[in-house]
Design a protein around this nucleic acid. Structure first.
Lengths: 385, 385
DNA sequence: CTGTTAGCGCTTTCAT
DNA sequence: ATGAAAGCGCTAACAG
């Protein structure tokens, strides 16, 4: 019963819903006074309190009974149908409010075969990129009155599959998804498509998956970055490559290759390093021992940061000796020093456009696939000349 | 028809679901060959493609008809009831799989009055803190087989209200929420409680809201931080305070006050600055003109960073001249230099415990309120002596 | 303008 | 072990 160790709130005299009160003692220690029976067990404070039990909800039948009309009439009134007298409608709406009537969306879905729900599957939310995508999606789905079922796949195929099945079982009206890294088998997405549920894929392109895509122009984004490096005097540019098997890695790599080509710089295989390489630091050091690298273009801001740390250990000046460009414009790009130049992806817009396309597919019962590619912008900060 | 500007994928020969193909030309420019009728309009590529239309889904009735039994039997078989012969069950399960039967969760909810859905309302996802909370919640809800309805309130009361109503209308089995900054009117949460829907509030405590809470011990966290500052020699400690009207701001402030008190340092009102102050930089400079500040304890890592920037402009050495401690252990704490010492909140655990308590309330039809307070840990990095 | 009826897909008594 | 029937809350087609 070490209640005194619990400081749920430290205001001088604080009522936690009329149950408990916190006061400050003369010693400035704060203790909790419980006015009802309570116990403290395994770190949880239990307060016996008369919680409202799931009382039976009021249905249109209840309203109908009160007014001596049929449920149909109630339904029509509440849904603003034409054929109903204004006075009656007002009366019904008024009563509904008084009785705290809450339309049962489940029952509605049952008859309309529509849930006003969309399934969203993203790999994770630790990268700001996906948060912004989410914000973009939310901005349009909220305004459209749709709810979001959100699942994170953690880049795990198993979770992806389960989530897709859950989406289908709950009869979402559409699915938005960014497929995870390691999924080579994409049959679960095929199931979604075959089910006839509109699907828009984000960010990463998958071969043989016939559906709408919203992606960014990674190729051009990388090309821009490399062009900038060359224009500012870089002659030997290292590329830190992203994970295998995802289209973005490959496209950014291609942009890098194209950038070199355009500037007649020979492609040197040894200047390409995998960001996820376990011996990243060692290998990077070896490259710097061997080559006169004066520019780095990384698949992500995080890889860029990893490289910068290694360079700083070596006492290499950034950007004086080596220019560095990252990718994505994650928040860290602004916080590290030197501030990181990077290729900014329009994450919010990706989400927004993806949602818009999805709603088009849903609402227009469209039979066509719609794809969109967005442009990146090069953000120059302190890590480049 | 500037199709050539569209590089949906830059692989040498890439089939986008058998519809289109991308090839590289001799000039390394990449163009898109469309094999079906298509058009490019307002930035969207439309591909006419025979998409599966929402075909009528197979129901238990369909299965029943095939096998010449009644829907009841199918239902029993699929739900693993006792009274059914094994052979029949296997037969039914087999057929269900073959026909791609997908149980209609909506219909199930209709009869069971249970949706296996919980509503989650968070202010935003740009702070890593909430992402980790989400991850914690997801880890338990996924394993329990519940879906998450996620809404962001953007700290807007209007969105909070709408989301709460949406949760109630879709008959979620429970609600998890962190109330936004500016909400003084909390009637929408009261509505949730009165409706009988289990509610667990995260992170921030609200007066007069009778429900379960999961919070961290902000008071102790702040106290620890201040104690550390004093122990490492700080005599004049500035506090950068969080937004008004949220319990965490107040509790961290109280911890700061308590820390001073414990060390017999007089509380100086002028050493307290609001983080959201529009004239933050100016006022901070004034304080440094007037006082010999040698320690800063900030409500958040972001505020701490803001302060550090000002100090660095002034040429003040950190931590030699001034020690700085932030709050939350956001990722930036590790990326800025000097790396920021901070009070780490167990965000993942908050989410996990909140979800666990919620499920207890849901499953045990518990009539008690359960609250939990988690401990913080002080993470010492480079910004302190 | 309003009532009647049927039904969305599933579960669940109550019989047999 | 299985069938028949009712019903979850709501909407919609058809009558009046």
């Amino acid at each position: 019963m070490k209640l005194d160790s619990l400081r749920l709130c430290q205001q001088k005299e604080f009522k936690l819903g009329g149950i408990s009160r916190l006061i400050t003692t003369e010693k400035w220690n704060i203790i909790l006074l419980i006015e009802t029976w309570s116990r403290y067990y395994e770190g949880i404070l239990y307060l016996e309190y008369p919680m409202t039990m799931h009382k039976k909800r009021v249905s249109i039948r209840d309203l109908a009974k009160v007014l001596g009309v049929t449920p149909s009439t109630i339904s029509r009134a509440l849904n603003g149908h034409e054929s109903i007298s204004v006075s009656r409608r007002d009366q019904i709406v008024q009563l509904a409010k008084e009785l705290g009537y809450r339309p049962n969306q489940i029952a509605k879905s049952m008859v309309s075969n529509k849930t006003f729900t969309i399934g969203l599957l993203l790999p994770e939310f630790t990268h700001n990129y996906f948060n912004n995508i989410l914000a973009g999606i939310e901005s349009v789905s909220f305004q459209k009155g749709y709810q979001l079922f959100i699942c994170t796949s953690d880049e795990l195929k198993e979770k992806e599959e389960k989530s897709c099945m859950a989406f289908l079982n709950t009869r979402v009206d559409g699915v938005l998804a960014a497929v995870g890294n390691d999924s080579d088998d994409l049959s679960h997405f095929e199931t979604v498509i075959e089910d006839g549920t509109p699907l828009v894929l984000l960010d990463r392109i998958c071969e043989d998956l016939n559906t709408s895509y919203v992606v960014t122009d990674d190729f051009q984004g990388s090309l821009d970055a490399v062009q900038y490096l060359v224009q500012t005097g870089c002659k030997q540019i290292l590329h830190i490559k992203g994970p295998e098997y995802i289209s973005t890695s490959f496209n950014r790599y291609l942009g890098y290759v194209e950038g070199l080509k355009k500037n007649n710089i020979p492609l040197e295989e040894n200047l390409i390093l995998m960001g996820e390489d376990e011996q990243f630091e060692k290998k990077l050091n070896q490259i710097f021992d061997e080559f006169e690298v004066d520019g780095i273009f990384a698949f992500s801001d995080y890889y860029a940061y990893d490289a910068i740390k290694v360079l700083q250990k070596r006492g290499i000046g950034i950007p004086d000796e080596v220019s560095v460009i990252g990718y994505a414009d994650e928040p860290i790009a602004q916080y590290i020093s030197p501030q990181l130049s990077t290729v900014k992806q329009p994450a919010f817009e990706i989400g927004k456009h993806a949602a818009e396309i999805l709603f088009k597919m849903i609402e227009e019962k469209n039979t066509t696939i719609m794809s969109k590619q967005l442009e990146t912008t090069l953000v120059i900060r302190e890590s480049t000349r």
